[in-house]
Each structure stands twice: as C-alpha cells, then as structure tokens.
Design a protein around this nucleic acid. Structure first.
Lengths: 204, 204
DNA sequence: GGTCGAAATGACCGGACGGTCATTCGGGTT
DNA sequence: AACCCGAATGACCGTCCGGTCATTTCGACC
C-alpha cells in the first residue's frame, strides 16, 4: 500500500506539474495557441510524456480548466457566505474577485479565453458550468436581498446576469490597464463604483 | 475610362464577394477556424483566386472585419443622434443594437469572436478601434445627459464602460437563447429592463 | 552487480493549412 | 480566325502540430 500510494502521489505530482505548465502557456498564448510542445517544454518533460498522463490535448485542457475554475469558485464561496447588507456583501464579492484575479492573472486570461471558445466543446462546457455556478451564487444573494426587502420585485436571476456583466467588465478593464502599467484606480474604488451603479443606478 | 471603371467594378465585386464569404465562414466557425480553403469554397472560387485580391489571410480578415465594424457603427450612429431624454435615447440605442444583431447574427458572432482574440494583432486593433468609437458615443450621450442635469456627478466615460458591459451581456444572452430556439423575451422588454437597471439601479 | 517492468523519450507519421507558381482559360482587339 | 493579356486555377511546397511507437532510461528488488 505504501508503494502504491507513493506511485500515485508521484503520478499526481506529474499530472499537476503538467497542468500548471498548461495554465502558464494558456496564460501566455491563449488556449488556441497553447501547443503540446510548448506545454511540454514549460513542464520540463518530453511531449510524449504528457500522453502518459493525459489521453489527448482535449483531456489535458479540460481537466486543467476544471481545476482552475474550481479554484475560482472555492475562492469566491467564502466571499459569498459573508453576512451584511446587500451593498456590503456585493462589494465584498467584487473586491474578492478583483483581488483573486490580480493574484492569478493567468487564470483570468484563461477564463476569458474560454468564454467565447469555438474549439473543444468540453472546454466551453466546463467554463459555462463554473460560470453558471457563479451566476447562481449571485442570484442567491439577490434572492436573499429580496426577502429582506432590500430590492424591489425584480427577477434575481436577471439581476445576477447584469451584475456579472458589470463585474466582468471591471475586471477586463482592470487587466487591460494593468498591462499598460497604469493601474490608476484602487481595487476598493473600482469595487465601490460598480456596486454603486448597480444599486443606485446612474440617475441623479 | 469606361473600360477601366468596368474592370474596377468587377474587381470590387469579386473583393466583396470574397469578404461576404469570409464573414459567413467566420460566423459559422469563428475567426481562428476560418480557413482560406473554406472561404474560397463559400465564395465559389479557387483558393488561389483569393490571393489575387488579398495579399494574405491577415489582410483578408482585417479588411473584412473593418467593413463589418463600419456597418455596425454606421447603423448605430442614426440611433445615437436621436433626440429625447436620456432614458429614451439609451433605450433607442439598445433597441437598435438588439435589432441589428438579430438581423446580422453572423456579424455579432464575428464581433464577439474578435473581442478576445490572441491571433492577428491587426484584427484586435480594428475591433478595439470600432469598439472604442462605440463606447465614446455612449460617453457623449452621458455627457449630454450630465449637462442636462439628468445624471449626477459621475464620470461619463466610466458610465459608458458599464453601460456597454450591460448591453453586451444582453446581446450575448439573447443570441444564446436564440440558438436554443427559445427567445422568450421581446427586444423591447429586454432593452427596457437593462436601461431601467442602468438608470434606477437595483435597489427598491 | 544483475534483472525486470514501468516510466520517459526521441524520432517519426499523417494531415491540415497558408501560400506560390506555371499553366489554362476567356473575352476583347485586330 | 488568330492573337493577346490578365484573371483564374489546380497542383504543389514547406511548415506546424497532434498523436504514436519502438527504444532507452531508471529505480526497485533479488
């Protein structure tokens, strides 16, 4: 049993090494341009070695994406379960998300790169599953706020869609700014701004 | 002169035929998977013929994208210049956009496909130029509304970003719904909903 | 040190794709 | 009808990439 565990551990270590390499290459080149060769070099193994642990390119990318998305969801769950008013909770969620993507920009690039993907259907599926979970969490938040009469008679699911759009946009712009070396606005300001618009609207 | 014009007209006709074919293929397969061979078949010409009119794949896609984006901008301009209150004007813009993409779904798919592109830099540039123009138009609209004291002391450019995010999201969801054969909500309702959220916010 | 089995790998294959070129084709001119 | 010239094309090339396989490498066990 000790031996077997050892082998398994070694195998899992190799697997995650390759997945880490895949994430790095995806972050650098995007999903479509992430070649097996480059992933292999990044992982410090031969290309054929990848095929010892993954059936084909699709399985590697699918499992890598699922891992990444799980990390994201897990990270956000702790923000979603915080107590407080709708404004407080929404701000916390946005803030946590900005922070997470600041620290894992490669993950965000992968996330975005998968958003509109026309290649492997499995990737789209994995992405849309995790995104659906995320939007659903937002919907819960609005449902609770509705119960507390913090919001009027609006469809929580529709609100969640709009909110996720706005948050997405903030992150995209933040990443683009960052790559231009001018992150002028703090996370806190950006989070407060978008939550303010969402809650109070544009009107005077 | 008559002869020359005739030749030019013929040439331009061929050009636009090929560009139309390129748009169709892009709409069907996405930018990355749009091969010269498939575009040629779609256009009813030999692959080599494309190279008579376009230097290479990049030039074909760039010019095709620019054409498409010009159509989009032109179409929206007439909506942007309508008179009325902020709410009326914004609703008109959103409505026109929904209608335009309903009628030119392939154009939207291409537009979205180009949004996050990691291939040809020229394409990204073309897209971001037209998108920048669009967001700028939105910004003008908010600036005017600010002058008319319809909105408070908020940065029009930032508002335009948020608004474009929300509108984009509505369109994406609309297209996805449509491909599932269940367009449950009318354009008017969807436009009114997103404008309502933008102007009045979520709060009760 | 020798043996064995699984892991790792370099070399290779088949196919797809962008791009080129010599040849063919077709309509206008004489 | 013969000729001409540019447009159109089929055949072809080099490259890249995913995937395979026979061979080698390496650590555990005797």
């Amino acid at each position: 049993m000790g031996r077997k565990t050892k082998e398994e551990v070694l195998g899992e270590f190799r697997c995650s090494s390759i997945q880490d390499a895949a994430m790095a290459v995806i972050a650098r080149k995007g999903v479509a341009e992430a070649t097996m060769q480059e992933i292999a070099v990044e992982a410090g193994v031969a290309k054929a070695t990848i095929y010892v642990y993954f059936r084909d390119r699709d399985e590697l990318l699918t499992r890598t994406a699922n891992c990444a998305f799980d990390r994201l969801i897990t990270e956000l769950d702790s923000a979603f379960t915080l107590p407080g008013t709708l404004q407080e909770r929404l701000t916390a969620v946005v803030l946590r998300q900005l922070q997470f993507f600041d620290e894992n920009r490669e993950l965000f690039r992968a996330y975005i790169a998968l958003t509109h993907r026309e290649d492997a259907k499995h990737l789209r599926k994995a992405k849309s599953q995790s995104h659906a979970r995320y939007v659903q969490r937002l919907g819960q938040l609005f449902t609770e706020a509705k119960s507390a009469h913090e919001i009027g008679d609006l469809d929580p699911a529709a609100l969640a869609d709009v909110a996720s759009d706005c948050i997405r946009g903030v992150i995209v712009r933040r990443i683009e700014e960052k790559s231009k070396e001018k992150s002028k606005t703090s996370r806190e300001e950006q989070a407060a701004f978008v939550v303010s618009i969402l809650l109070r609207g544009i009107r005077a």
